[in-house]
Amino acid sequence: MKRLLSTLAVASCLLTGFQAVSWAQSLPGLTLFSGIKGENQLPYRLDFGGQADGWDRYILRIPAQKMKLAVAQIAITYPNYYKGSFNPKKIEVMVKNKPVPLSEVKWDKEGRIIQIYPQEPIPSGSKVEVVLSDVKNPSFGGTFYFTCQVLSPGDVPLLRYLGTWILSIS
């Protein structure tokens, strides 16, 4: 009986540990001293664990309540110390779990910006996911602030801030 109980205790600890690891890179948890207000932090998921110098897929989410206007362009900026790489051909935008046709995706390495242009404006109130596949994480881990800005159709050509994804690469 003692062996059975000790085996169950060890097994439950192992399962709990694996479960915590799998949750570690899904959505931001409690972030202290980030400089970004809680309402401006956007949820995300790193599909392959966010390991330094590894390949990954970033799912960057924009909640429906942030999408107050239709969107004609999404711009994602990142810090100069982020030394990862992106494949613009493997970037897609999902609305209601369906890909949105894109007219163009530009990655300006020097300007540290990814510009995404849907063929048709994304309707206001939509829950949006920007999927960055085939991402090479930086060689050294850290915390990286990816900022989301959007341009509405007919707007004065100034990008409007929606929020920030605070990505952790280990």
Rank of each mutant, 00 (worst) to 15 (best):
S103M: 12
E92P: 09
T143Q: 15
L69A: 02
Y117C: 03
T7E: 02
Q65N: 14
L8K: 06
F48E: 10
K106W: 15
Y145A: 01
G49W: 02
P99A: 05
F33V: 01
E104A: 15
V150C: 05
G35K: 06
G50F: 12
S126C: 04
S170Q: 13
M94N: 00
T16N: 11
L32Q: 12
L102Q: 05
R160L: 07
P28N: 01
L27R: 02
E92V: 13
I116G: 07
G49F: 03
I113V: 07
P79G: 07
F146Q: 00
P43S: 05
Y82H: 15
L158W: 11
S126D: 01
S6D: 09
N97G: 11
D155C: 04
Q115K: 08
A24F: 14
V156C: 09
P99W: 12
K2D: 15
I166F: 05
G141F: 00
V150M: 02
Y82G: 11
Q65G: 09
P79M: 10
L159W: 05
G141Y: 05
D155S: 09
Y145V: 04
P43K: 00
W165S: 01
R112S: 00
V128F: 05
F144I: 05
K2E: 13
P118V: 13
V71H: 03
W55D: 12
Y81K: 11
K96H: 13
F140R: 15
S6K: 09
W165Q: 01
G141C: 03
T143E: 13
L5H: 03
Y82L: 13
F33P: 01
Q73Y: 09
L151E: 06
P88K: 14
K89V: 14
P99N: 06
G54D: 14
V156W: 09
I62T: 10
V128D: 00
Q119Y: 10
F48K: 08
I114Q: 04
G17F: 15
P79W: 08
N137W: 04
G142Q: 07
I166C: 04
G125Y: 09
P138N: 00
Y78F: 15
T31H: 12
Y78I: 11
P101T: 02
Y44W: 11
S12P: 03
I76G: 03
S133R: 15
L30W: 12
A70Y: 10
G17N: 10
W107D: 13
N97W: 08
I36G: 04
R57K: 11
S170G: 14
